[in-house]
Design a protein around this nucleic acid. Structure first.
Lengths: 341, 341
DNA sequence: AAGAAATTGAGGTGCGCACCTCAAAAAAAC
DNA sequence: GTTTTTTTGAGGTGCGCACCTCAATTTCTT
C-alpha cells in the first residue's frame, strides 16, 4: 500500500541502509554484487526515491540563467516577459532564474561574458545568440566547466553535446512556402522575401526551406532575392517600395525576421489596390493585431512561453542527471490564422 | 542569502513558530492581529514555503483519475498512451493516475460510475464524455463531494465551477473553413462534411464555426448537409460514395470526427481523377501518414499529450488550492501541414 | 474580581532522504 | 598467517515543514 522507502529497499536487498545509500548516490566502495542486489530489489519492489525528500535533503537551489540580446524586437520583449513569468512561478520551486542581456551581435563581448559565468553561480545557461566561432568556443568551455547549456531558439551552429530548444527553421520556411503556394493557387507571380540579415543561420535555413517548396511544388511562382533590412526602418521602407514598384506581379510576401511591423506597413502602403498574401514569423502584439485586421494572412510562430519552460525543464533535468523527455520538449511550428489565434 | 524559513518568518513577525504555523495552515484560534502580522512579514521578507518540505511533511499522494470512453478511435488510443506516459513520469512525483474506461455514451452507466467515485480514493477526476443532464448532475455531485473536476476535451456543457481542458470547437471549425476556402481560391464548388454523429456538442460547434466562415468569406462555396457515419464503416463508405456521385462539383471535404480513416479512404476511392481538398481532425498514425502521402491536405489537431498534462497540472493546482496558470493551460488549435508535422 | 474562553508559546515527532563518521567484517595482497 | 585494502553496517544529523500536546498568558464574561 505505502510507497516503499529506502529502508524497505535495504530490507528487500538484504543489505544495510548505508550500502543502499552508497548505491543510490554512486558513492565509492561498493561491490558489484551489492549494486546488482540493490538494482534487482528496486525492480522487484518498484522503488522510487521520493523527490520531495531528495530535494529537501540536498537542500539545493537550481540556478539558471538566460543570456539574451540586449536590444531587439517585440518578440524579444515577449520572451523576456515569459522568462519573468516562469521565474515568478518557479520561485516557489527552488529555482532561481536570472537574465543577462548582452549585445549578442558582438562576439567579443558575448564570449567574454560567457567566460565570466562560474559553475559556482549557475547550474545551467540558455543562450540565444548568433553564430560565431568565438562564441562557439566560449560555449564549449562553459560546458567543460560543468555548466549545462541549452542553445536557445536558434543562433549557433548546434553543438553536439548541448541541448537545443527551438524549431527546425528549414521546416518553418517550408511551411511558409506551402501556405503561400496554396493560398495563391495556380496564378503565376513573384514572391518578395524580407529578412533582417541573411548572415544569420536562421534566415538562411528558412529561405532554403521556403525555396525548396516553392520550386518543387509551385512552378508558377518565382522567389525574388532576399531583401535585407539591417533593422533600419528607413532603408527597409525604401527598398520594399522600390521592389514593389519594379515588380507589379508580386503576389505574396514572406517576412522572415521576427520584426514584421516595418515591412508589413511598407507593403500595405504600396499595395492598396493589390491584395497580396503576407506570411510573417512570430506572434507579437503587432502581428496578432495585423492578423485580426486582415493585414496579413498567416503567422508562423514558435510559442515563446513553451520555449522558455522547455529550456528550464531541460536544464533542470540535466542538473538532476536525468534525461529530458524528448517528446514534450519539441517546439512546434505553429500556423496561426485569424481563426485560431 | 538563504531562503527564509518559517523560523525566520516567526522572528520577523515577532511571533512564535506555533502561531505562524497556525496562520499558514488556517488552523483555528488565531487572532486577527496575528494573521495580519504574519502576512505583513511574509511580504516583507519574501517568504515562500519550501514545497518539497510541505510535500514531505504532509506525506500525501495525489490521486487523479481519467474517465474515458471504453471504445473509440485511434485518437483515443493516443490519449490512453499519453496518460500512461504521464503516469509513468509522475510516479516519481507522488502522483498516481488511474484510468477508468466506461461506455460513456450510456448516461446511466456513466453517472452510476461517477457516483461511485469517493473522495477518499481520488483527489481529482478528468472526464471525457458526451453531454447529458444525468451526467451533468453526477458531475455536480462529484464536485460537491470535494473532488476536483476537469471537463476533458469536450463533451459536456461547461459547468461553471469546473475547469475545462480542450479547444474551442467553433474556432476549430472556423479554422478548417478558412483553410479550405483559401486553398480552393475563387472557384465555386461544394463542400462535403462528414461527422460521426451530429448529436455531439463538438460536432455541432465545429459545423457552426465552419459554416460561419464559408458563408461569410467564401460565397462561391456551398456546404452540403453533414453526413453521419454513426461509426459504421459500411454505411460511411456507402453514403460518401453516393454523395460524391450525385455532386460532381464537390471540391473539398471536411471530416469532423476524430476517426478519419474510413471517410478519407472512401473519398479517395471515388475521386481518383478529381483532386479535392481534405481537412481532417486530430493527429493519429493514419492522418499523419495520409498527410505525408498527400492523401489529405491539413490536419486540425489538439495535442493529446498537452491536454493530458494540462489536466493533471490543473487537478494538482486545485488540490494544492492554487490557481492554475491560465496561459499555460490553453490548448492550441494546431494547423498541421505536411511541412510542419 | 473570579472564572471561562480564547490566544499564544515551547517543545516534540515524523516525513524520506543525503551525507557523515567510526567501527566491524570480509576480501585481497604479501 | 599477517597485513593491507575494500566493503559493509550501525548510527547520527539536518533539510523545512505539518501536526500534535500541554502549559502559560491574555482577553472576554458576568
Amino acid at each position: 500500500m505505502m510507497r516503499p522507502t529506502a529502508k524497505d529497499l535495504a530490507e528487500a536487498a538484504g543489505l544495510s541502509l548505508a550500502t543502499v545509500d552508497r548505491v543510490l548516490n554512486d558513492r565509492p566502495n561498493v561491490s558489484a554484487g551489492a549494486v546488482r542486489k540493490v538494482n534487482e530489489a528496486i525492480e522487484r519492489i518498484g522503488f522510487f526515491r521520493n523527490p520531495a525528500a531528495v530535494v529537501l535533503a540536498r537542500n539545493k537551489l537550481y540556478r539558471f540563467r538566460f543570456v539574451l540580446p540586449s536590444k531587439g524586437d517585440q518578440y524579444l520583449l515577449e520572451l523576456l516577459q515569459r522568462v519573468r513569468e516562469a521565474s515568478q512561478t518557479l520561485k516557489s520551486e527552488l529555482t532561481e532564474i536570472t537574465v543577462d542581456q548582452i549585445p549578442t551581435d558582438d562576439p567579443h563581448q558575448l564570449s567574454r561574458h560567457l567566460a565570466s559565468i562560474e559553475h559556482e553561480a549557475v547550474d545551467g545557461v540558455a543562450v540565444m545568440a548568433p553564430e560565431s566561432p568565438q562564441v562557439r568556443d566560449a560555449l564549449s568551455r562553459l560546458m567543460l566547466r560543468g555548466i549545462h547549456l541549452v542553445q536557445f531558439l536558434s543562433g549557433q551552429e548546434k553543438l553536439e553535446t548541448a541541448d537545443f530548444v527551438g524549431v527546425d527553421n528549414f521546416a518553418a520556411g517550408a511551411t511558409a512556402g506551402k501556405i503561400i503556394g496554396r493560398f495563391l493557387g495556380k496564378d503565376p507571380g513573384k514572391v518578395m522575401i524580407v529578412a533582417e540579415t541573411m548572415v544569420a543561420r536562421d534566415s538562411i535555413e528558412r529561405r532554403r526551406g521556403f525555396d525548396s517548396i516553392i520550386n518543387q511544388q509551385f512552378p508558377g511562382l518565382t522567389n525574388l532575392p532576399s531583401l535585407e533590412t539591417y533593422g533600419d526602418e528607413r532603408r527597409a521602407t525604401a527598398i520594399i517600395r522600390q521592389v514593389l514598384e519594379h515588380n507589379p506581379d508580386i503576389k505574396a510576401a514572406y517576412i522572415m525576421s521576427p520584426e514584421s511591423r516595418v515591412p508589413v506597413t511598407a507593403i500595405r502602403q504600396h499595395t492598396d489596390a493589390r491584395r497580396i498574401v503576407i506570411v510573417v514569423h512570430e506572434r507579437t502584439p503587432f502581428s496578432e493585431e495585423a492578423l485580426r485586421n486582415d493585414q496579413i494572412d498567416t503567422i508562423i510562430a514558435q510559442d515563446p512561453g513553451h520555449a522558455v519552460r522547455s529550456a528550464i525543464r531541460i536544464m533542470r533535468a540535466r542538473t538532476d542527471e536525468r534525461e529530458p523527455i524528448a517528446s514534450q520538449e519539441k517546439i512546434r511550428i505553429e500556423v496561426l490564422l485569424k481563426e485560431n489565434l
